[in-house]
């Protein structure tokens, strides 16, 4: 055989090769160190931050702006993790935005009108989120209704319930001052970002390091094969939907204590950013699968881009929607393209 044996040796990348090959592999080693494919999002954030700092230094590069950015993203982050958990399990939960609204209404009305202890109010709201998750799970696993349709319908029902609970009014007064103080600045950062960090670490640990997380990934990727390996897929679907309900409620609570008021439809606008972050996240850190770190990184890409453009174009209130929509399309498109490339290259 007239085999050009050098290629095989070079592709192993062991030891410094000579000449052109050496340069090429040195270059690719640097690229590998930087891990552009895995951490591209982190680099994008750096580029965006630098760009906006140079472009609009007087508004973007300020401590106040950083706090606004972090505070708003804390809420988005918590609900994006709700979306991530569901997507890992292979199920869409489109009711997370509405669940968040319900939690906002409940935690506000329970305190303002019901005079309930804020801790009890928070617990009841989280329990309500879990209950929503149970109903979703029942609809999906027992009645075999497609999750997209089932949770979309649930979303509409919850919007009605939230309106009814809040009587169609935003709770402006009557929230416990202790409750609201939990949304203050702590250690120089808005408290909700700390809540996000804690939740993200727990979610990461469960998903990456416990059997439940491993089974959840397996069940999401191939429920039939997972079941035939003894994994209880139904139980996992319940777990995922209940988790997303509770996380969505937590996002609602966090928003309420941050704002100091309880807008009864406040969760709806968080649905798209949550899914945008989760899908973009599947191209980051652990490319090819939904993952907690990827979601958090991606959320900040979107946030920095939106925030910078909002400050630069204060007369364009539509910019946030536009950027989010475009980024979601690009993210999913990029993920598909990257996968195809991996297959073609082997």
């Amino acid at each position: 055989m007239t085999a050009p044996a050098t290629t095989a040796a070079r592709s192993k990348g062991s030891g410094p090769a000579s000449g052109v090959a050496g340069k090429a592999s040195a270059g690719s080693r640097i690229l590998q160190k930087l891990a552009i494919d895995r951490f591209s999002g982190v680099y994008i954030i750096v580029v965006l931050v630098v760009t906006f700092c140079l472009w609009i230094p007087q508004t973007f590069a300020t401590q106040a702006n950083l706090r606004v950015l972090l505070a708003s993203q804390a809420i988005t982050g918590i609900i994006a993790l709700a979306a991530t958990v569901c997507l890992i399990s292979g199920v869409f939960d489109l009711s997370i935005g509405a669940t968040m609204s319900l939690s906002i209404s409940m935690v506000g009305v329970l305190q303002a009108t019901g005079g309930v202890n804020p801790i009890v109010a928070v617990l009841i709201s989280l329990a309500a989120g879990a209950a929503v998750g149970c109903i979703n799970a029942l609809v999906v696993t027992r009645f075999n209704i497609d999750p997209v349709i089932g949770t979309l319908a649930m979303s509409a029902v919850l919007a009605a319930v939230s309106w009814w609970v809040a009587n169609g009014e935003t709770v402006l007064y009557g929230l416990s001052p202790t409750f609201v103080s939990f949304g203050d600045i702590v250690l120089g950062v808005p408290a909700p970002i700390i809540y996000l960090a804690v939740i993200a670490v727990i979610a990461w640990y469960v998903l990456e390091h416990t059997p439940a997380g491993r089974y959840l990934y397996a069940a999401g990727a191939n429920p039939v094969a997972a079941r035939l390996s003894g994994v209880n897929v139904t139980k996992l679907t319940w777990g995922a939907l209940i988790s997303s309900g509770v996380l969505a409620s937590a996002a609602g609570v966090a928003l309420t204590l941050q704002l100091g008021t309880a807008p009864f439809a406040g969760g709806v606008s968080y649905l798209l950013p949550a899914y945008a972050a989760a899908f973009l996240g599947s191209t980051q850190i652990e490319p090819g699968r939904f993952n907690v770190a990827g979601t958090v990184v991606s959320m900040f890409i979107v946030a920095v881009a939106v925030r910078g453009l909002q400050l630069r174009l204060p007369d364009a209130p539509w910019i946030a929607d536009l950027v989010q929509g475009v980024i979601l399309l690009l993210a999913v498109g990029f993920a598909v393209w990257a996968r195809r490339r991996r297959i073609a290259r082997g």
Binding site: T210, P211, R214, Y215, Y217, A218, A221, N222, V224, A225, A226, L228, S229, G230, V231, G288, R289
Partner: peptide
């Protein structure tokens, strides 16, 4: 392909799926 393996997951994760508790 459809029942025996989770194709997108690694060799390691497929091999230990039914006996993961051994390592917990």
């Amino acid at each position: 392909h459809t029942q025996g393996l989770i194709l997108s997951e690694s060799v390691r994760r497929n091999m230990t799926l039914a006996t993961l508790t051994d390592f917990v």
